[in-house]
Simulated assay, not measured.
Amino acid sequence: MTKAEKTKQYIIAQTATLFNKKGYAGTSLQDITTATGLTKGSIYGNFGGKDEVALAVFDYNISKVKGILRSEVAKHHTIKGKLMAYVDVYTHFPKFAFPDGGCPMLNTAVEADDTHPQLKQKARDAILRWKKSIETLIEKGMKNGEIVKPVDPEQMALTIMATIEGMIMIAGLTGKPQYRKTIMLSVSKMIEDLF
């Protein structure tokens, strides 16, 4: 890795929490220089501006989430186990190395919906990839006979995702982390009912 690549990675890693907590609009160039200890010239020497940093940070934060989910799902050999891995991860959210500040998809989607088309597109793409991964698991479960009840894979994937994202928002907004477990029991039941 070149020195420039290392510097870019450093900037991304140092500002990942900043953007995830304060959002795009709330993060200033001064915040970025303070978080990194670098000058504005150094930031602009590595990125075309705040937009480029924000987009790279979104990718970085999403890759952390995807890595956690991929790793936990891979530990299971049945479709039920793979789907229940989502329940385990989000029920025990604090034990995993999720980005500080909550779900980057949720945070970005809410903020960028009407203000930043590129970030909105990145959040949309991440949501659609997540939906597809859950849909694929459900389709495999139906094909191999593990899932015995007829179900619309897209509808089930969207319902699971919406419940998880709603849980993150409710637990964070109310400051009641115990709501994670309460709400994830509903996701667990949805999954159990498929088998």
Rank of each mutant, 00 (worst) to 15 (best):
E154G: 02
I12L: 07
I164Y: 02
L119P: 09
F93A: 02
K132D: 12
D193M: 12
M105H: 09
G67H: 04
D59E: 15
E192C: 04
T15E: 09
V87Q: 01
K66A: 11
A25N: 03
H77N: 13
L158D: 07
T2I: 06
K122R: 15
S186V: 00
E52L: 07
T2F: 10
M184H: 10
T78V: 03
L83P: 04
A4P: 00
E146R: 12
T15I: 06
Y10K: 14
Q9R: 14
G67I: 02
K120W: 01
C103Y: 09
M184Y: 10
Q30K: 12
F96V: 06
K189Y: 14
R180I: 03
F19G: 09
D88F: 05
E139C: 08
K80F: 14
K132M: 01
M156S: 00
Q178S: 14
W130N: 14
T15F: 12
M161W: 06
C103G: 02
L119C: 02
H92Q: 08
N46R: 09
K3C: 01
S186G: 15
V110E: 10
K64G: 03
F58Y: 13
K131L: 13
I147L: 07
F93D: 05
N61L: 07
Q9E: 15
M142S: 07
F98R: 09
I134E: 08
Q30H: 03
G49S: 07
W130D: 09
G49P: 09
G67F: 10
Y179K: 13
Y60K: 09
N107G: 15
Q14D: 01
T39S: 15
Q30W: 00
K3P: 00
Y86Q: 11
M161L: 15
V89D: 01
V53L: 14
I147T: 06
R180S: 11
L137D: 05
I164A: 01
G48N: 12
L69T: 11
G37W: 03
K132S: 13
Q30C: 00
K140Y: 04
K143R: 12
T159D: 10
E146D: 07
D31N: 15
K181L: 09
Q155F: 02
D100T: 11
S133D: 13
Y10V: 04
G49L: 09
P177V: 02
F58I: 00
I164L: 02
E111T: 08
I12D: 06
I127M: 15
Q9Y: 04
V110Y: 12
F93E: 13
A171I: 02
A16P: 09
F96S: 06
E5C: 00
K6Q: 15
M1Q: 08
G175R: 08
E5T: 13
G49H: 07
S188L: 03
H116W: 11
R129W: 08
